[in-house]
Amino acid sequence: MSEHDNHHHVTPLGPMVFTLVSLVVLTVVTVLTAKFVPLPGSGNLILALVIASIKGTFVAAFFMHLLYDKAVNTIVVMSSMFGVVLFIALTMVDIGTRKLHEPLEAGEIVAGGGAQWVERDGKQVVDYKGSYGPSYDAAPGKSVLDAAREASDATGEHAPDADEHNAETPANDAAHANTPATTEHAEPAPH
C-alpha cells in the first residue's frame, strides 16, 4: 500500500456499481421473501438475517474497501463480529435453556433433591428427571432421602406400606411428616 508521490489508489467504479445494484436487489428480495413467502418456524427470520449478512459483507468488502486494505482492518472487524456473535449466542444459551428444567416454585424445595421415588407401572422407581436440582412433575413422588427416612423408620416397627408411596402425596408434606431423629445412617429403601 505504500504510496509514491505520483501514484494514488483510486476506488474502481465497476465493483461499486455492482455492489449498489446487488444491495438494491437483495433489499427487494428480503422484502418479498419476508412478506410473501411464509416459511415454517423461524425460516423467514433466518433467511432475512442471512441476506442482511450478505449485504453487510458486500458493504464492508467493497464500499468500505476492506478488500483493498491492510489485513489488520479485517482482523479488527472479524474480532468485533466475533464479540457480537459470542455475546448474543451465549446469552441465548442461558435464556433459551431455562425451560429445559421445570421452574422451581417456593415451597417445593425439599431435602433430597430431584431424584425421587415415583410409581410407574405399579413399580417404585427412582426418577432422575431434572437431575440438575429439585424438580417435580405433575404427580410428585417422594424424594430418595424421604423414602430412606421412611424405610429406616419402618424397619423398627412395621413393614413399609406400598400404599403410603401413593403418587398423590405431595413431596413437601412428606418431608414435614417424616423427620425422624436417626436420619444420619439412613439408607435408601430396597424395593
Binding site: T30, V31, A60
Partner: peptide, 20 residues
C-alpha cells in the same frame, strides 16, 4: 467508513424490526 456502518446497522435493523 462511519456512514457505511450506519448503513450496515440499518441493513440489519430493517428486516428484524419491520419484516420478521
Amino acid at each position: 467508513l462511519y456512514w457505511h456502518i450506519v448503513d450496515v446497522i440499518w441493513i440489519f435493523l430493517f428486516p428484524m424490526l419491520y419484516l420478521v
